[in-house]
Design a protein around this nucleic acid. Structure first.
Lengths: 341, 341
DNA sequence: AAGCATATTGCATTCGAATGCAAAAATGAT
DNA sequence: ATCATTTTTGCATTCGAATGCAATATGCTT
């Protein structure tokens, strides 16, 4: 009764707050802008009215005028690889601490990327993190549109881009050395998809290290990074004569699949008969049934770096691109052991 | 040279397109609004100009005037439970097919929910999907603000809310029956967190089914839904005298942890010495090292239902709330077998 | 060809906050 | 107390698209 208009139908706007506090709308706006020039008294008055009306600035309206949406689009592949969720959650966490919101896009097929890019454009996202496919043309398009792109674990050869990359060279060397020290000489590889840069890098480094240390790759097969795909690949490797005594999978998920196939289908013991290693260091690789020897990517630090780089590019769009490389680390599990006999 | 202004500094607006096509801004706007009244000739002219200028409507500006952001906030717990990513990806996929974007919020601690709700308000999200904690007060607040909320696998007793729920009663009965048929009578429970509704439901149903069928719960322990937490819980159960011959974990993740603890630490075989079952039917439960007997939630259908319900509530905000209940299904794996002796 | 109904188009305004600029108030120096 | 400085405040405009209404064009009927 005392305040017939205390609850206006919709949400309160800066005008409502201004009226209630008996000040101008500009003043209200300034109260909610960090470094703005406003007196203490004014701030108190406004904040009180704002609290009463449950006022929060409308991010949409703000975005329209400031041309900053504070939205970051994150593209992740939806394939059920446990690596992506870990990355995604880390990124979201870290962006939100910086006041940025994550607009999520899951990519099933390549076409989805196109859609996502359009949405990014429509929503005026302040930047894109790509942990998914992204063609060089698409990247160029985004550059033209002046949308900062940070690529997570991918880049285009020499074409410059903002990239967070995990260097596994040294760790791979250690890991292969570890196998060689165990007496392994005959290696089998389970590769990931051909298009995957990460896969090519890992396989190339492994081959190189094997060769340098006097081992040889005697069999290879291809999977698609998924657990299930490792079964056939493993069968193929084990059909080789002689059989490899150590298997290097392009990621942990396939290493886990291979390990299970060997133990439960082929009927060989790991690591007694065959040693297995993977890459990524996903959480599940630590499960007692696997305890993979692997190379861990420092995902938390990588996410942090991606966020920092993104903020930087948003602030200073003219900065030239940068590639930040963090080292992966060798983790010794129990999936590797001495060569049989 | 021929078109000095072909690339205006920033992005093209509807005015730019209008000018180029020689029509009014309204016409451009209407071309991009589905059911609007526009002639074929006009549409062609505009679309041509739009293509030339790479025009896409600005979703921010549109949102301001239409009061629809087409953003849906999704709250998921960040705890590394493989269940959440599966749900999240399904939801994102399905929302995007409906033209809605997902604004992701990961919840670490309860305080984060408050933040998320504020952001939702600021961004004028059209709705919230909560697959995370949400207090009844917070829910009420959102109702007051007329933001539709759909809760995924949670609800508040009698207090009405839009909910997608998986009913595991029948399947639990089957699962317990399956164990009883195998001769088990002494059950151990690994509960999830106390606050979890899903946990309470699962445990209550299990207890009831066990009792009805003449078994008894002889030991119980509590975990936090995570893999690691199952180790201690399992030790506690196995310390009981007599030892349970069947363990029921409140989710698959803990069932996997229990299985590993038994096999690799306690030194018992599953299912020869002990049978284990879980709940959820996550992907990893199908890995050959586990092959859990479990109850699968139809996550895809649940996500679909959540999306449908959300669209419905956005269209007709006055609709009274609804609880949609999908049945979980019993999946027989190899983690269960006859009671020893 | 006139008359009327219907389909298109443009005009002008609106959404809610931010900001350059000028006016007003507070502060300080003398 | 006076004037110069600095800080605060308010005014008016802007961001880009949507939309009610009025004006115009089109189609149909006879």
């Amino acid at each position: 009764m005392s305040e017939p208009f205390s609850k206006p139908s919709g949400r309160a706007t800066s005008y409502d707050v201004a009226r209630r506090a008996g000040v101008s709308q500009s003043a209200v706006s300034r109260c909610f802008k960090p470094g703005a020039s406003i007196s203490k008294k004014m701030r108190e008055k406004v904040m009180l009215a704002a609290k009463d009306l449950n006022y929060q600035p409308n991010a949409i309206a703000r975005g329209l005028i400031t041309r900053r949406s504070n939205l970051i689009a994150v593209l992740v592949s939806s394939q059920m690889n446990f690596y992506y969720p870990e990355v995604l959650f880390q990124l979201t966490d870290k962006f939100s601490k910086q006041g940025l919101r994550v607009l999520l896009f899951t990519i099933n097929e390549e076409d989805d990327v196109e859609d996502a890019i359009n949405q990014v454009w429509q929503y005026q996202a302040d930047g894109i993190i790509s942990a998914s496919y992204l063609s060089i043309e698409q990247h160029k398009l985004l550059e033209e549109r002046q949308i900062p792109v940070v690529m997570f674990n991918r880049y285009f050869g020499d074409y410059p881009s903002n990239t967070i990359w995990c260097d596994t060279a040294a760790a791979t060397d250690l890991m292969i050395g570890h196998l060689i020290d165990f007496g392994h000489t005959d290696f089998g590889l389970i590769e990931g998809p051909e298009y995957s840069m990460v896969n090519r890098e890992r396989m190339t480094l492994s081959r190189k290290a094997i060769k340098e240390r006097g081992g040889k790759v005697i069999a290879e097969a291809r999977g698609n990074y998924r657990y299930e795909s490792a079964a056939n690949a493993t069968q193929a490797l084990m059909a080789n004569d002689p059989r490899p005594t150590a298997i290097i999978a392009a990621n942990d998920m396939m290493a886990m699949g291979a390990l299970d196939e060997l133990k439960n289908v082929v009927g060989r013991s790991v690591p007694r008969d065959v040693s297995i290693v993977g890459f990524d260091g996903i959480g599940a690789a630590r499960f007692a049934s696997y305890e993979l020897t692997t190379i861990r990517q420092p995902i938390g630090r990588m996410a942090e770096a991606a966020v920092t780089m993104m903020l930087d590019r948003i602030e200073k769009p003219e900065t030239s691109s940068e590639k930040r490389v963090l080292a992966g680390s060798f983790i010794q599990g129990t999936s590797t052991g001495p060569v049989p006999q």
